[in-house]
Design a protein around this nucleic acid. Structure first.
Lengths: 174, 174, 174, 174
DNA sequence: CATGAATGAGGGTTCATTCAT
DNA sequence: GATGAATGAACCCTCATTCAT
C-alpha cells in the first residue's frame, strides 16, 4: 500500500463520512488527497470499489473492541462492555459508521460482521443470565444498540454518559 | 394544489425514499410523475425546495398519531402508545422517515417537531410515574425509539411484534 | 426535427467522415454545430445512437439513385447505370460512405440494404444477358463495385471517367 | 529486437487489426503482451511510432509474394498471380491489411510501396499483351484488386475461389 | 398551467505518456 | 531493459435549471 493510496482512502473516508457517497466527487477526493484524479482509478478501478475498500478497512477498526469483549467470560461484564460500545467510539470508527449507516438506507446493505458478533455475544449473555426469552432479548438489545449508535453519530446528546448509565440501570448492571 | 403537483410530490417521495436524494434526478421524478421536467421548477423553484415540501408534507402524516397520543392522560397508556409508534407506521410515514433519516447524516438536520413532541410527552409520563431521573429517562427513551425506527425502516426484524412486547416489558407496561 | 438537431447531424457527419468515429469527440461535434454538448445526448441518447441516426439518414441519400435504376428494364442499360454509381456520388453520399466503410472494418457491420438491392438488380441483369454463371458474375461484380467505391472515396484516381469507361468495355456495354 | 519488443508488436498487430487504432489502448496492448505499459514507450516513443513500426513490419510480409511475381516473365502467368494475391493471404498479411485499410480512410495515407509495385508489373503485362490502352487497364485492374482485397478482408464471400476464377475468365487467363 | 428544447457545469472514467526505481 | 506508480487532459455522459412557446 503506497503512501498515495493511503491518502486517497483517508480523503475519501473523511469526505464521504461528512457529505455522503453521492455528494462526494472523485475530483474532490483527489484534490484533498493531493493526488491526480486518475490515480484513484488505478488503485480502485471504481468509485464503488474505493467505497468497498473503505468499508473493508472500516470493519478492521471495529475488530479490536469486539475481540476485547469476546475474550470476556462473565455475562454481566460482557453486557456492560457491549452497552459501552457506542459511547466509546474513536474518530476512525465514527467516520466508518457515518459512512455505513446511510448506505444501509440506500441498498439493503448486508449486515456487517461485527454486528452479528455483538448479537451472538449478547445472546449468550442473556442465556447465562437466565432471561426468560433470550432470543427476543438479544434482538431487542441490538435494536437499542442501533439507537445508541445513531444517537451518538448524530451527536444528539450533550451528556452521553447519562444515557450509558441509564441503559446500565435498565439491564441491572450497575 | 393541482393534480400534477401532487403527482410530482408522490413521485419524488417514492424515488427519494428508495434511492436517496442525490441519486434521484429531477428527470426521473418528472418521468415517473408523467410530467415535463420543467414543471417541477415552476412548482418548486428548486430540487431542494421540492425536498422541503416533501418534508413538510411528511410531518403532517406524523401529526395524526401524535395528536392521538397527546389526547391521552394516563401515563402508562401514553408510554404504551409511544413505544408502539415505530411498529405501526403506514407506508406514507415509512417513506417519509426513509427520506428523513439519511438526511440527518448529511446535514445536521434540524430535529423534527414531532420528535420533540414525543420527547415532551415521554418526559411528562416518566415524571408522573415517579422515575427518579425523568430527564435521563426521557432522553434514553428517545434514543431507544430512534433505534426502533431505524430497525423498522431497514426491515431488520422478521418479528417486530416481539420487539414491541419486549420493550413494553422493559417499561413494565404489560 | 429541430434546426439544432439537424446541425448536430451535419456536424457529426462531416467530422466523422473525415476523422473517423473514435477520433471524433462529442465535444468537437457540439462545437462545430454551435450547440451545447449536452444537447447531443438529449437528442440521441448515445454517441452510438447519433451514429445510428447518421447511418439511417445516409441510407436515405442512397435511395434515389437506386430507385432510379430499379425503374429501368433493359439489362444493358441497368448494368451501365450500376457501374456508374461509384462515379457519380454527390458530397452527401460520399460522406456517408466514408463513414460506412471504416465501420465495416471495426464491426462486421451488417450489409447495407442498398448494396443488396444492387446485387439483386445485377443478378437479374446477368441472367437476362445469358451469362453462363450469373451468380458468380453478380458476386464478382459486387466485388468490383466495392473496389470502385473505395477507389473513388480515397480519391486515388485523377481520371475516374477512364476507369468507368474501361469497366463498361469489360462488360461490353459501350 | 528483444523478445518483449516482439511481443508488443504482435499484441498491437492483433488488437489494432480487430478493433482499430483509436479503439486500442496502449494499456490493452501491454496487457496482452504481458509487459508493463511503460515499456511500450521505451521501445517506440509513441503510440504513433508503434504504429509506424507495425506498418513497416507489415510491408515486409508482403515482400515475398511480390518478389515471387517479379521474378516471373510470361505476362499471362504474371496476371494470374497478381489476381491471386487477395485470395492467398496468410494471417499475418491479413492483419496487416486490416490495419492498413481503415488508416487510409483517416489520413490520405501514402500509397504503400507494394501496391505500386503491383501496378508496375500489371502495366508491363498489359503492354506485353497488346491491350489498346494499357494505362487505363492497369489502373482499372488496381481498382478491381482493391475490391478483392476489401472483399476478402471483410470476409464477404463464402466461396472466394469462384470470385478468383471469374476474374481469371474476365482477363482470359484460364 | 404546462411543455420540451436548450444550456453549462460537473460527474465518473480512460487515455497516452513520464519518471523514479 | 523493465516496472508500475503517477499525471493531467480529454473522454462520454448526466445533472439541475432556464426559457420561449
Amino acid at each position: 500500500m503506497t503512501h498515495k493510496k493511503q491518502a486517497i482512502l483517508d480523503s475519501a473516508q473523511y469526505l464521504i463520512a461528512s457529505q455522503g457517497y453521492d455528494a462526494t466527487s472523485t475530483r474532490s477526493i483527489a484534490k484533498r488527497a493531493k493526488v491526480s484524479e486518475g490515480l484513484i482509478f488505478r488503485h480502485f478501478e471504481n468509485k464503488e470499489g474505493l467505497m468497498q475498500s473503505l468499508l473493508k478497512r472500516g470493519e478492521v477498526t471495529m475488530e479490536e473492541p469486539i475481540l476485547n469483549i469476546e475474550s470476556l467470560t462473565h455475562p454481566k461484564v460482557i453486557m456492560k462492555h457491549l452497552i459501552g460500545l457506542p459511547f466509546n467510539l474513536n474518530e476512525v470508527q465514527r467516520d466508518f459508521l457515518k459512512i455505513y449507516y446511510p448506505l444501509m438506507f440506500k441498498f439493503k446493505y448486508d449486515q456487517l460482521e461485527f454486528l452479528s458478533r455483538i448479537h451472538d455475544k449478547a445472546l449468550a449473555a442473556f442465556k447465562a443470565l437466565d432471561y426468560s426469552d433470550p432470543n427476543a432479548e438479544a434482538e431487542t438489545f441490538m435494536m437499542i444498540l442501533e439507537g445508541a449508535f445513531v444517537y451518538m453519530l448524530l451527536e444528539k446528546s450533550s451528556q452521553p454518559f447519562i444515557l450509558f448509565e441509564t441503559l446500565l440501570l435498565k439491564y441491572e448492571l450497575s
